[in-house]
Simulated assay, not measured.
Amino acid sequence: MTRLTWFLARHALIGFSIAALFAGMLFGLDVAGLHTLVAASPVGMVAAGALTFLLCLTFGSIQMGIAVMQLEERDTPPRGRRLRLAPVPPRGGLGAPVPVRVTVDARRR
Rank of each mutant, 00 (worst) to 15 (best):
P87S: 03
C56P: 09
C56W: 08
Q63R: 11
A19L: 12
L55T: 00
M1F: 14
T76S: 05
R101F: 15
A47L: 03
V38E: 00
D105F: 07
T103N: 13
V68M: 08
A40Q: 08
T36K: 00
A23K: 07
T52I: 02
E73I: 04
R10D: 14
V46R: 04
P99G: 10
R81H: 02
F16K: 11
A50V: 02
M25T: 08
V38A: 03
S17C: 08
V88L: 12
G65H: 04
I18T: 03
T52Y: 02
T76Q: 05
G15R: 04
V31G: 00
D75K: 15
R107A: 06
M69W: 13
R107F: 07
G80I: 05
R101I: 13
V31N: 01
P42W: 03
V100W: 01
L13I: 07
M1K: 11
T5N: 13
P78W: 06
A32Q: 05
L26I: 13
T58Q: 14
I66S: 12
F22E: 13
P89M: 09
L54F: 10
R107L: 10
L4G: 12
L34P: 00
F59K: 03
V88N: 10
H11L: 05
R91S: 11
L8C: 10
M69I: 15
I18N: 00
R109C: 05
V104P: 04
D105T: 06
S41C: 01
D75W: 05
D75V: 10
F59P: 03
V46H: 02
A48K: 02
L21K: 12
G28M: 10
M1Y: 07
F16E: 11
V31E: 00
T36G: 01
V68R: 13
L8K: 10
P42L: 01
S41G: 01
I66N: 08
P42R: 06
R107N: 11
R91N: 14
P87K: 02
R91A: 12
M69P: 04
F7G: 05
G95A: 07
S17Q: 10
V38Y: 01
P87T: 03
R107D: 15
E72V: 13
P99W: 09
F22P: 05
A9C: 06
T58M: 12
R84Q: 13
L94Q: 11
P77D: 12
R101Q: 08
V46G: 01
A20P: 06
R91H: 15
P78V: 05
R108K: 11
V100N: 00
P87M: 02
L85E: 06
L51E: 03
H11N: 13
G28L: 08
G49Y: 00
A50F: 00
S41V: 01
D75A: 07
P99F: 09
W6K: 15
V46N: 03
F53W: 04
V100D: 01
G80C: 14
V98G: 07
A96R: 15
A106W: 04
A32M: 09
V31M: 04
F7R: 13
W6D: 06
L51G: 08
P99V: 12
F53I: 08
P97N: 12
V68Y: 12
L85C: 10
V46L: 05
R101T: 14
R79S: 14
Q63Y: 05
A67C: 05
R3L: 02
A96P: 06
T5Y: 12
G24I: 09
M69H: 09
V68T: 09
